[in-house]
Simulated scan of single mutants.
Amino acid sequence: MPPAPAAPAITLYVPGLHGGAGWPKPPPAAFARALARTRRVAGGDEGYAARALTLFDLPPSAGLAALARLGEGRARDDRWWVRCDPVHLAVDGDRLLLLDNDTLTLDAHEAQRLCARVAEVFAADGGVIEALAPTRWYLSLPDPEPLHTTAMAEVAGRNIHDYLPEGHARYWRTRLNEAQMVLHEALSAGHGGEAARGEANSIWLWGPGRATPSMRAALAFGRVFTDDALVSGMAQATGAMVAGLPAGVPDLDYAGATLIVLRGAQGAVQYGDTDAWSSFLEAFVTAWWQPLAAAVRARRLARLSLIGDRGPCHVLEPGWWRAFAGWRRR
């Protein structure tokens, strides 16, 4: 993956870009034509959070929960944090499928009620939980047991069996079971039945660690557009300017490297919705790729990079465009 150049340059980070493994459905023709005109740079199967860390030149050991908490507007501290997000576990035969927090319908009042019940599970250990958004919860423990987790983006839509927490596995899996029981009790008291799809009947722990001053890395991007707390926190940790996702292509006169995170394909891939994936890519080509590629041809951009959470990076530069056009004429 190439480092961010001295700009002007834009990187589009699109998790789910290359679809799901083994999908028989090809990408839309317009998207395939767009990628055919790019230079490919090899990449690995890193996953959403891991590849974001790479983009920002942050270490793999960085505490993802602590970074996301920065992105929520909280001040940096030296406490240990782990994401403790509400999720729905759906029974599918002998499997338990994780439906992530983006699928929930929690409002602020219900989230606070359920969060308070889950906090009881960790109270004896000195734990506190902050619900910084209805579906984004953060757990801090003063003396945490060893914990190794899988980021929720990599588990969504899958059987949780192969992704349960490790480290002090007995401690953490016991706490997960206790959290499921108190959530079951709370939901039963609320409507007298089992949790329906869209309701939180469990939690998922991921991203443990700390956000210490040593985490700060070199400035990879001068500005970042994202609606994701985790990427926002990474941007703040590296000193970038952060803003919410714009409705369309931002100002191209910015003399620096820009990162834009578009997550519209991510859920489609996680839950195997090939039609939604294709629809997103078709809209992406029209709204984002075509105007930015035109800016490269007009030399208003020195580089346009497109990267997913897995697979190669696609790079478009003025010189490469001319070389490609010449090759096509021959």
Score class of each variant (00 low, 15 high):
P5A: 13
A7M: 06
I10C: 05
Y13N: 02
G16F: 07
G20W: 13
G22W: 09
W23G: 14
P28E: 00
R33E: 13
A34F: 12
L35A: 04
G44R: 15
G44F: 13
D45V: 13
G47W: 14
D57S: 15
L58R: 00
S61R: 09
L64M: 11
L70Q: 02
G73Q: 07
R76S: 10
R76V: 09
R79F: 09
W81E: 05
C84Y: 02
D85P: 05
L89F: 06
A90K: 12
A90M: 13
V91I: 11
D94L: 14
D94A: 14
R95T: 13
L96I: 06
L98Y: 05
L98E: 01
N101T: 11
T103R: 15
T103E: 11
L106W: 07
E110Q: 14
Q112M: 12
R113K: 12
R113A: 11
F122S: 04
G126A: 14
G126D: 08
L132R: 03
A133F: 07
A133E: 11
R136K: 11
R136A: 15
R136N: 11
Y138E: 02
Y138L: 13
Y138K: 00
L141E: 02
L141D: 04
P144F: 09
P144R: 07
E145Y: 10
E145A: 15
P146Y: 04
L147T: 04
A151K: 00
M152C: 12
E154A: 14
V155P: 00
H161C: 05
H161V: 14
G167I: 02
H168A: 15
A169S: 15
W172E: 09
W172F: 05
W172Y: 06
R175F: 08
R175C: 11
V182N: 12
H184V: 00
E185C: 05
E185Y: 10
A186N: 13
E194Q: 12
A195V: 08
A196Q: 15
R197Q: 12
E199V: 02
E199K: 03
S202F: 01
S202A: 15
I203G: 00
G209Y: 02
T212D: 13
T212N: 07
P213K: 00
M215W: 10
R216H: 10
L219Q: 11
G222W: 03
R223I: 01
T226I: 03
L230I: 04
S232D: 01
A235C: 06
Q236I: 09
T238C: 15
A240E: 08
V242F: 07
A243E: 09
G248C: 04
G248M: 03
V249S: 11
P250R: 11
D251G: 06
D253T: 13
Y254R: 08
A255L: 07
A255I: 00
G256Y: 04
L259H: 01
L262P: 01
L262W: 01
V269P: 01
Y271Q: 07
Y271D: 01
G272K: 10
T274I: 05
T274C: 08
W277N: 02
S279W: 10
S279C: 12
W289G: 03
W289C: 12
V296E: 01
D309C: 04
P312G: 06
C313F: 00
F324H: 13
R329H: 05
R330F: 04
